[in-house]
Amino acid sequence: MKRTLIVLALSSFLIAAIPPHEVQNVRLEVERYALGLQVDVLSAKRNPERFRALNRALDEIKMLRENSFTATQADEGYLDLMVNALEAIPPESQFKRKDCAKYENDFLNQFEPLAEEAPMEPAVKPGWAVLQALCR
């Protein structure tokens, strides 16, 4: 019981000790990684390079999220959706270009079922851009 109270008090103290501008920067930092990922994927000449960029960015985003606090539940939801969309891309070992129509259809159905051609949700766009680059 005492340990639980100490942990709760410590976590409350840590949350209060982080200035709001630093909390807000978690989402901005993740968006920076996502933008860098899109640039890397679009500039890569072959899919192995694109998958390396995807895996590197996903690892960085996950590590940043594990080691940081977010400001709001909306930010948490946004970041969860972005990570889930990136993780929905088939791994390199299972990716087949001939199945791209299925991958794209499944991606849209899972993350933005009302989209006609491309997702409009900002958190889903990086995953869509990576998938599009892998399929071209």
Rank of each mutant, 00 (worst) to 15 (best):
M63G: 11
A34D: 05
L14Q: 01
I15H: 02
N47E: 14
P48W: 10
L64F: 07
L35S: 12
N25L: 08
P48K: 07
Q38M: 14
V30D: 02
Y33F: 15
F51H: 06
E31V: 03
Q24W: 03
L28V: 04
V30E: 02
K62R: 15
E60V: 06
F13N: 00
P19F: 07
L14D: 00
N47C: 05
E22I: 09
R56N: 12
Q24E: 10
E22C: 01
I18G: 01
A34W: 03
V41K: 05
I61P: 05
P19E: 04
G36P: 01
A17M: 07
E31A: 07
L28D: 02
L35H: 13
P19Y: 05
E31K: 12
R46L: 10
P19H: 07
R52F: 13
E31P: 02
A53H: 09
K62F: 09
R46W: 10
R50P: 05
N55Q: 14
V39H: 11
R50D: 08
L35W: 10
N25P: 00
V23I: 06
P48G: 07
D40F: 06
A57K: 05
L14K: 00
R52C: 01
M63T: 15
I61Y: 04
I15K: 00
F13A: 05
R46A: 12
P48A: 09
R56C: 00
L58P: 09
D40C: 04
A16I: 05
N25A: 12
K62T: 15
E29W: 02
P19L: 09
L42I: 08
V23R: 14
R50A: 10
L35P: 00
V41N: 06
L42Q: 14
I15Q: 00
L58F: 11
V23L: 13
R27I: 03
A53K: 07
I61M: 13
D40W: 04
L14H: 01
P20Y: 02
E29H: 07
D59R: 15
L28Q: 07
K45T: 13
L35I: 10
Q24I: 03
E29V: 03
V23N: 05
K45G: 13
R27W: 02
A44I: 10
N25V: 00
P20M: 03
A57F: 04
E49Q: 15
V26I: 12
L42A: 13
L35T: 13
E29Y: 02
L28W: 02
E49N: 12
A17R: 02
D40I: 03
L28M: 06
D59A: 15
A34E: 04
R50I: 12
N25F: 06
E49C: 06
V26M: 05
V30A: 14
V23Y: 06
P19A: 10
L58E: 10
R27Y: 03
A57R: 03
